[in-house]
Design a binder for these strands. Sequence first.
RNA 1: GCCCCCGUAGCUCAGCUGGAUAGAGCGGCGGCCUUCUAAGCCGCGGGUCGCAGGUUCGAGUCCUGCCGGGGGCACCA
Length: 555
Amino acid sequence: MNPLAELRAAVEAAATALRGDRAAPSAAVTLQRPKLEAHGDYATNAALLLAPVLGEQPRAIAERVGEELAERLGDQLQSTQVAGPGFLNLVLADPWYRAAVAHVLAAGRRFGGGEVGAPERILVEFVSANPTGPLTAASGRHAAYGDALLRILRFAGHEVHSEYYVNDYGSQVLRLGESIRARARGEQVPNDGYQGEYVRELAMSIDGAAEAEPAELAVAGVALMRARIERSLEAFGVHFDSWFSERSLHEGERPTAVQRAEAELEAGGHLYRSDEASWLRATTFGDDKDRVLRRADGQPTYLASDVAYHEHKRARSFTRLIDIWGSDHHGYVRRMQAAWQALGGDADELEIVIMQYVHLIEGGERAGMSKRRGDFITLDELVAEIGSDAARYFMVQRSHDTEMDLDLDLARSQSADNPVYYVQYAHARIASILEKAGAGRVGAAVEDSERHGRSVADNGRDTGPSLEPSERTLIRTLLAFPAEVAEAVERRAPHRIAAYALELAQRFTAFYRDCRVVGAEPPAVETFRLALSVATQQVLAQALGLLGVSAPTAM
RNA sequence: GCCCCCGUAGCUCAGCUGGAUAGAGCGGCGGCCUUCUAAGCCGCGGGUCGCAGGUUCGAGUCCUGCCGGGGGCACCA
């Protein structure tokens, strides 16, 4: 149990002791890091919540919560103070802080992770951009978000599988084939075709493109684009466990996957025929209207593919599916959810996350993003210009449900101002300090800290040098990591980790400013600070790793 | 018309699902390198949290209604 969880448990125990067998308060007590130093190291609203239950003044209750806590925490607690309407501010003693550092070091790379109660098997499907062109920079946001999310889910203890759904079937793909042939013949690309320069390259790299059928060219072109997309993603640090072909749902042995899914819906009584077409009773499951699954001409709609695809996902026995879609698909969410339930899926098992747009700004104007017109900035170009780390950090530092602007001119000229470098710099700086101290002293410091942690646990005795304010602040920030991870998981919000990493780097830099590490006197101070530096480096590296950003040891 | 997201500092955005005097980065102004990395540090300036009500000890956060921006409402994908 981490020190913060223990502290919270003590606060809750104190509250429970005061409450006796009376009803529990409506909300859980908070244990927060106050914004102002004057408000202590941690503050709890326990008394404010107990007031209605006990029918007494909050401040008087806070007083008693403080007494209960003092009894429970002994010399771990330095002081308490009742403040404001009835907050109880806590100041922890140095031994508590030293034990906390020991805990972080002992937990090692597991610190903050593996805390989920019930591990799940999760399939995360993301990016899934049409293979009719290269990945755009906008797709980079999907890639950065989805990859960070799955890293965080894994770290938290879930089993996660990542998948890219390849839309290699249907009219868009055929248009690509037609466009390739037109280019190969030196003809004008059709109006509804793909105008990009890459189509010309595709035409050149496919033998006999001028004479081939568009359908064949579509297959060949998609294969080439898919490979290129995979390369772009790998260069961006994003790896997919599997690539799922939409076409495979329509081909192969009869009945096809699409046909089987239709039969299943039919058997469940979720289909009906009208105007020659086959309809899904989506309204049964909360959609605005019923949806066509198979057109009057016998052709399946895109929904039919998606139904079959999700049936396939279901058969793979995940406990949860997370689909990450662009905001332009949000109108599609309800029908997918309806189809999912019609297939017999549990509504809670399918989660659809909607990503808002990232607008690329160039020359003060929004850059185009039309794949059709070939007017777009590719992910490859973005990575080449500002680097994978800067691009990824930029993409995940904001909440996925808010639109954001990326000014390319700014990103190019001032990429060094990207906060990611500040975080990496802190990490590299620690590496430099540790190198200066030497592996021997660092190793001894870590050992000493862990031994210290054990001896405090055994006999409750602690005799060490007193800590500076910036050391205490840094340690509190380290201890916040597990809760930040939990929050990021719960809310599918990797940007929380980006914000956390920045804060941790700031706290370390303040510590660095105030506290000499190598050569600090007496030696016990140096030992403690080395241990604290190691702990910080470890958590910084972990946080960056969760974002898919490198943690350099030198810059 | 209906549905979803957003509106917080000059700009880009956080704000821990209701807590105390609302923050960060960038930009602006002024300082700081004989000392573990100046990709850094310190200081200053900058806000009717879109507007109006409501809920309560307490609202940027929750509810209602407006206003503004973006997106979506296919037998396209």
